[in-house]
Simulated assay, not measured.
Amino acid sequence: MDGLRRWWLVALTLAAAVTAQETRTQPLGGGPAGVERLALVPLGGLEAALQPGAGLKVTFQKEGPERRLLALEATPAGDLTFAKALELSYRISGLEPQAARLAVVFHEADGGVRYKLGPAPTIGAPATSRISLAEPREALFSADASGKFETDRIARVWVGLTIDGPAAGTLEITRAVLTNEPYRPTGPLLLDLGKPEQWGISKESGVTAKITCPAEGPAGQPVYRLDFTFPATAHQWVVPSLPWRAENLEGYRALRLTYKVTAPAGPNLLLALAEPDGSTYVIDPPPAISTDWKTIEVPLAQLKLASWTKDEDSSLLLDGVAVQLGIHGQPKPPGAGSLWVAEVALVP
């Protein structure tokens, strides 16, 4: 009996060791915090200087409206395949949050250059943020023969800020480490509902549709409004779509929507996320028709592949998705309706 109990304990211990992932970090630069020997990269369009003294502090000044990069360079040690995010502890002054993004640029040994923008930084107080390293984009000046991100061949890494518009301030980095812990968003990511002309509209022949952005939200705020007319009892549809333009869509758990709708009897709402290749994942069963404002939260894992599309990997990939906010079905009788959407958000 004791022998059996001993083997059971051994098996339990081994199972725990396999399932528990040990956190791994690697300093980006020198020293335990990864900020030693980081060198300021001389790039055009802004003036920057390293300040003497303890720590790593850069002053910068920029006058033009264009986007420029403030970067510090490190030479990483070894294979970076393990890394899922770059974690930065920093303090920034002199910028508006919407005018800056944390950024990392990877220079591969064969000439490939890829970059990833992080979240808008905290301004005016010490903060720690992660930049996801999933699927970085290839830079226009990249000379990558392989066509893929080679994490085992990284020769140099730049870390810093993109800055839009005139600015003058400081960037202080106290810690820069690569980690196998993934990027974790700290709050909802709201879709910018944009302007009516930014939406593409796909619809059945004969259906009329118009998008406006009136101040008709629950708190009097501007909202997405789709007005449509279904002229026949046959299956009718109108599906506007808008790309979700954000650099970091990883790490979110659910899709949240606040909406209301008036419609002829019969049609259902069609609320979906569509990948760039057309693979479309819908909320199924569709949200209830409600003439009062209603907020729903649907786990992304519960979105279903639409029957009229296909996906080779059968999984929703958020990078590059477009949001679809429409309605379809057989109206009985034909008629007009409206769909208002006050908020679309990804939530952690």
Rank of each mutant, 00 (worst) to 15 (best):
P121S: 08
Q302K: 05
M1E: 00
E275L: 10
A155L: 14
E275H: 02
W199P: 01
E297F: 13
V10G: 00
S129Y: 03
T170K: 12
G34R: 00
D144W: 14
L242E: 10
E275P: 04
N180E: 09
K332Y: 13
I131S: 06
K332G: 14
Y252N: 08
Q236F: 15
V223I: 14
T262I: 03
Q302G: 07
L339K: 11
T23R: 14
V223H: 04
G78C: 04
L316Q: 00
E297P: 02
P287M: 08
L38F: 00
A71K: 10
V341E: 07
G337Y: 14
L318M: 06
K62N: 10
A16M: 11
L316H: 00
T233V: 09
P32G: 10
R156L: 11
L9S: 12
L43C: 06
D79K: 02
L161Q: 03
G320K: 01
E63R: 14
G55F: 00
P27T: 00
Q198P: 00
G53V: 09
W8N: 06
G147A: 07
G34F: 00
W293E: 02
K57D: 02
V113I: 12
S290P: 15
E247I: 03
L4A: 08
E250W: 05
G34V: 01
A272T: 05
R5I: 12
T162V: 07
L56I: 04
A301M: 11
V18P: 11
D79G: 10
G111D: 10
G112F: 15
G326K: 15
L95K: 02
L300Y: 12
L249I: 00
P267C: 07
T179M: 07
E275F: 15
S89Q: 07
I283A: 02
Y90M: 06
K310M: 01
A11W: 14
Q61K: 13
Y183W: 15
R245T: 06
A109I: 12
G147T: 07
